[in-house]
Design a protein around this nucleic acid. Sequence first.
DNA 1: ATAATTTATTGACCGCTGTTTAATATATTT
DNA 2: AAATATATTAAACAGCGGTCAATAAATTAT
Lengths: 233, 233
Amino acid sequence: MPSSPREKKTRLILDVAIKLFSQKGYAATTMDDVAKTAGISKGLSYFYFKNKEDLYMAVTKKAFDELKGVFREIFKQKGRNGLEMLTDLASSYISFAHSNSMYNDAILNFMGIMQQYTQEENHGQIHPLILESEHFKKLLDIHHDCGKLGIQMVSQGIKDGSIRPELQPEVTFYTVWSMIIGYERLTGPVAYEDKDIKIHLDNWKPGFIKLLQDMLKGTIQAQKPQVVQASLF
Amino acid sequence: MPSSPREKKTRLILDVAIKLFSQKGYAATTMDDVAKTAGISKGLSYFYFKNKEDLYMAVTKKAFDELKGVFREIFKQKGRNGLEMLTDLASSYISFAHSNSMYNDAILNFMGIMQQYTQEENHGQIHPLILESEHFKKLLDIHHDCGKLGIQMVSQGIKDGSIRPELQPEVTFYTVWSMIIGYERLTGPVAYEDKDIKIHLDNWKPGFIKLLQDMLKGTIQAQKPQVVQASLF
DNA sequence: ATAATTTATTGACCGCTGTTTAATATATTT
DNA sequence: AAATATATTAAACAGCGGTCAATAAATTAT
């Protein structure tokens, strides 16, 4: 890791951006702000990053790098079946999103852009500079890598019998992923008291995880989970 | 419905905003744009709406009104069990979001704001003018109404035996709601071709719905669904 | 070593856009 | 008809993203 002076300064700006976005949010953070905090002129920021969105995409890439790390960490641990992996994934993502809500926002934002990107009719709504961003292209790949890892977890679960066999791994994973993403969007707002119906959702998570597991185990309780790797212990 | 001249002009601006936001997106639509298209001066827009975000909140309220309509429509139909209602809800929301992606964006955006709103540490990140917006307060209520209707659907399903009885309606509904919200965020991006793993998700929806139903029916297949109301036909 | 060229860096400036405001016209009430 | 409240406008303001010409620093070539 030689880390050229150029890379160093890029990182400096990036770190400042991460800090400020976390503190004040993306919209409320100005480019003057970033430059000032980094101790450089505003113009120089635009030498290292094409524009504000490009900087945000760089931050988003950082977020996805960490997310992919979570996926890989879970996947590489031995002695656990697919169901346990996916349970862990849900749990870990929730922790991840809570400990770093700015990263979560960035990920969700990117998914929104991707959605428009894949819908012809709304293609033009995306700021053209985003699509040119090098980071954006990389992000498409990283996102896809996460998907592949998740699908492999489901496949693993089907093999080891912890997940019911008739499911299609791709469909199943993305359904699980939907749940997780959606949970994060709702997890705060739902804790809203009411007179008519008592909503006790301070601890919604266990019920959520339970439902997720039941969905994966399925209606047929026939086959017993057989751990593929007893391994190591 | 007297519809005073003031209400009329408010509606006019709102309709123009809906049209422009749908065409160009919220960010790319300027207030000059809105005013010009509505045939009024820009300053007048600020007489009817506090600011741009307030206008967006008004648009978001329209979106939630329609959404609540979907919830109520499904709930009031007789002769259907809870599971069918929730299945229909998922299906209808997906259609709703596809036919009007701007409304979907507005709803998702609002959920993001709510999330920050309920997290003390990020409270300050919300633009203070949003919280002052009359529409924002109303939105909190409408969102809650939707939640109540959804919870009642689950309760109904437990009563009529179409949903497994040990579930907590609140937790279950919000888990279902998470799935739906998450699905919409992912539904485009996922259709991404790959060499290693073939992902055929052009028609992910049926699998998604199937998993949702299985989750609700649960592992115990014992009791047969008994339709509560045969009614009317 | 020195010239030439590429890479960093600055600060001033531009234009757009959300927002405000003073002035004014129109409608409503007294 | 006066007084008051409601609409409406045009101009101006301020902040921010983004650009650019000038220049300094570093690197390469001669």
